[in-house]
């Protein structure tokens, strides 16, 4: 395989990893605070629809992204209300959110646009209706100046702003989690909320904060999906990415840097399935396309079944906090 093909695959790995990364970090904040969230999928989907729809209506992708984040936050608030305030079952709440998002997005899309449950393509609404690719300085000039330049122009340059935001969120998450007061308390509340409560800190407040951060990041994941990666919303376009992100989170043992690596791995597998030709040329085997398509999902199942080492989730995860009697 030549360098250009490899770089193209890696380049699309990064693109495809970005929504996973946002969702994975979203889950990381929530689960580190002790709130399991299998509603990542639904939040992403809702955000994808509202960002595409509002971007189409306003012809401004930034307003669209904000709308997506808003929609995701609303679902986060529902999850928070159910699992923190009313101490309900977090899995059931998450499943409910997924169903709600899957149904509502299509319903509203049909009502607003009458195009069979999708939004119009954003390319019809001018250059500002989508997140476009940013060409970093000197990228074009660097292309012809050897492999380093090629990597710079092919792989590092030429992504939309959200890809860079996503990559920067990783060190930011690490810093918040391990170097700030908020992070210490957040990790503590996921391990032993009673310790936080008796230390005079509000368990409920911390958990809502975590769920809100989760909502914002899921919103970005959805917005990127519909306005960066694709040009518009189609039914069920998150296609299991929320679950893949959960698998990546477990694979990453709830750590930000590992989350990046896990998401890049999944992104890479997804990118491979787009380049069946390159895989076949490399392996000299007639690889069925369906197998390539299924790879990320197979890996998800393998990880969720616990075949990849033992990951210890936050100890208070999934348990509503009730002061003991």
């Amino acid at each position: 395989m030549d360098l250009v093909t490899l770089l193209q695959i890696l380049d699309s790995s990064v693109r495809l990893a970005t929504p996973l990364l946002f969702a994975c970090l979203a889950g990381l904040f929530s689960e580190r605070a002790g709130i399991f969230d299998i509603g990542l999928e639904g939040k992403m989907l809702a955000a994808a629809f509202f960002s595409a729809a509002v971007a189409a209506l306003t012809a401004n992708v930034w307003i669209g992204a904000l709308a997506g984040i808003g929609a995701s936050l609303v679902l986060s608030a529902i999850h928070g209300l159910a699992s923190i305030t009313f101490r309900g079952n977090q899995l059931i709440s998450g499943v409910a959110i997924n169903f709600l998002a899957a149904g509502l997005t299509v319903l509203i899309a049909q009502d607003w646009f009458s195009q069979g449950g999708r939004t119009p393509s954003l390319s019809e609404f001018g250059p500002n209706a989508r997140f476009t690719e940013i060409t970093l300085p000197f990228a074009d000039a660097a292309r012809d100046s050897g492999p380093v330049g090629l990597i710079y122009s092919e792989l590092i340059s030429g992504h939309s702003i959200l890809v860079y935001v996503g990559l920067l969120t990783v060190p930011l998450t690490w810093f918040i989690l391990f170097r700030t007061r908020f992070g210490l308390r957040l990790r503590a509340v996921g391990e032993n909320p009673a310790a936080v409560d008796t230390a005079g800190v509000s368990v409920v407040g911390l958990r809502y904060a975590a769920v809100a951060i989760c909502g914002i990041l899921c919103g970005l994941a959805g917005a990127y999906l519909a306005t960066g990666l694709q040009a518009g919303f189609v039914k069920d376009m998150s296609s299991g990415r929320g679950y893949i992100a959960l698998a990546a989170l477990i694979f990453a043992k709830w750590r930000p840097w590992y989350a990046l690596y896990a998401c890049l791995l999944f992104g890479f597998l997804q990118a491979l399935s787009l380049r069946q030709d390159a895989v076949e040329r490399l392996t000299q085997i007639d690889v069925p396309g369906q197998l390539l398509d299924a790879l990320p999902y197979i890996l998800t199942v393998v990880i969720l079944a616990g075949f990849v080492g033992k990951a210890i989730p936050p100890r208070a995860g999934g348990e509503p906090y009730v002061k003991e009697r």
């Binding site: 007061r181 032993n192 009673a194 936080v196």
Partner: peptide, 24 residues
């Protein structure tokens, strides 16, 4: 029943909730 975070260090447990500022 101790109210300690099992996988934190002694220092982190002592400081939890009584930090001086936003940086740890």
């Amino acid at each position: 029943h101790f109210k300690l975070v099992q996988n934190f260090t002694v220092l982190e447990n002592v400081v939890l909730g009584a930090e001086d500022g936003p940086r740890l």
